[in-house]
Design a binder for these strands. Structure first.
Lengths: 220, 220
DNA sequence: TGTACATCAGTGAACGCGCGTTCACTGATGTAC
DNA sequence: TGTACATCAGTGAACGCGCGTTCACTGATGTAC
């Protein structure tokens, strides 16, 4: 039961639909959309091969649903924390470091199932690297309201930076995060081989936070 | 002759082997490894379907060759500029901005064929997101000498930052660059829709440079 | 309460298609004697 | 210089396999009268 990829049905009695979404989310994040077959997903979810087409119509529609289910909760999380932040943000620069720390920790978090930051970062990167524009343009719509919240959120601690500038810096940050999450193991191993810097997640998170805070606060 | 993806044989009389590598490089960068078929590549390169297996053995070996051909010249470019930089780097912080500017411009450069930075950034990102570790571990070896040069290069202007720290910051930078290159159009379009900030490459390069210079110079 | 029909979740087996790879072959060039 | 053989780049057609999708079907539950 402690496999690297554990079966998603484990005793929780989820519906077929949700078991498919859980399995697809994991496998797409790990292996990509084209590299993950319907047979992989249904085997992993312990459902019939035809169930994906029955519940979602097609593989492409399943991919869209996976993203919808990932993005929608982020909106809520941001809204919750926004109110708290406004109250406690006495000193903006400290507050920014606090936020970035939370984002970085979240991005590397590999919880059991929902709110798995590492899976989300991998999916996000795959979405931006997808060949056809289909998924990208689908996401662009859905993504907007989340992004508006993000920019508003970060602007609370970066009032002197223009909105469009914050918007781009958030994307630069996402790029660093996604790349670091995807390459953590390999990059860490190379670092160890070259500089005897034994890889350690805490140090990585600290380094990322330093880099990102400085980048976000850059002067125009 | 001005197609979005132009045929690679155009009058240059390249060998079959090189025509295949050129076509594969472009198509892999645009669409990914799994999504690009041997038939796509050979059609694009204007060669026989069996020529890939004849010259490279298999599709996987072709992928490796594409990376070898991309990475090896970077080593040389760095070595060349290193000498110049040592001479002219009177003020380190200005020199860093100069370097980052060059890197950013290079990363977005879409030249006709060789030294195409945008293609390289896309390939790099795909390599880190590849499902099996095969390509990653193959690259890790080849990549090392290039990375050592990179770190030495950046340390010339960041002498106060530890080597392992510079090593990681370079990867954070690569992540931002790769994400920005891959998503330039979509992110730009969303930015325009949300903030009436009409997308313009010069502004993007300036923003990226600011963000990266600040991140690289972050205090520990 | 009983019967007839409708809806729905799920299934097993098959479909045709495109994939990477293989193989026997061709034709040009190089080498040995 | 001429003949026999070897090497090499390239080719056309086929191979088997795994893919996403479809379809007729089952069995359980809901609804109408």
């Amino acid at each position: 039961m402690m496999n690297t990829i554990e079966s998603v049905d484990s005793s929780k009695n989820l519906s077929t639909r949700e078991r498919i979404l859980d399995a697809a989310e994991q496998l797409f994040a790990i292996s990509g959309f084209a590299e993950t077959s319907m047979r992989d997903i249904t085997k992993h979810a312990n459902v019939n091969l035809a169930a994906i087409n029955y519940h979602f119509g097609s593989k492409d529609d399943l991919i869209n649903e996976v993203f919808i289910r990932c993005l929608d909760p982020i909106h809520d999380v941001l809204q919750e924390n926004m109110d708290n932040l406004i109250k406690e943000a006495a000193e903006p620069s400290k507050a920014l470091k606090h936020i970035v720390e939370l984002v970085v920790i979240r991005a590397f978090q590999t919880e059991q199932q929902r709110h798995n930051g590492a899976i989300f970062m991998r999916l996000l990167n795959r979405a931006y690297n997808e060949s056809q524009g289909k998924l990208r343009s689908f996401l662009a719509e859905r993504y907007k309201k989340t992004l508006i919240d993000c920019v508003r959120f970060f602007r609370l601690t970066l009032p002197q930076v223009q909105r469009a500038e914050v918007f781009w810096r958030i994307h630069f940050m996402l790029g660093s995060l996604a790349f670091a999450v995807a390459g953590e193991k390999e990059i860490g191993a190379i670092g160890t081989a070259l500089y005897q810097d034994q890889h350690n997640e805490k140090a990585l998170l600290r380094r990322l936070t330093n880099f990102l805070v400085a980048g976000l606060q850059a002067e125009a």
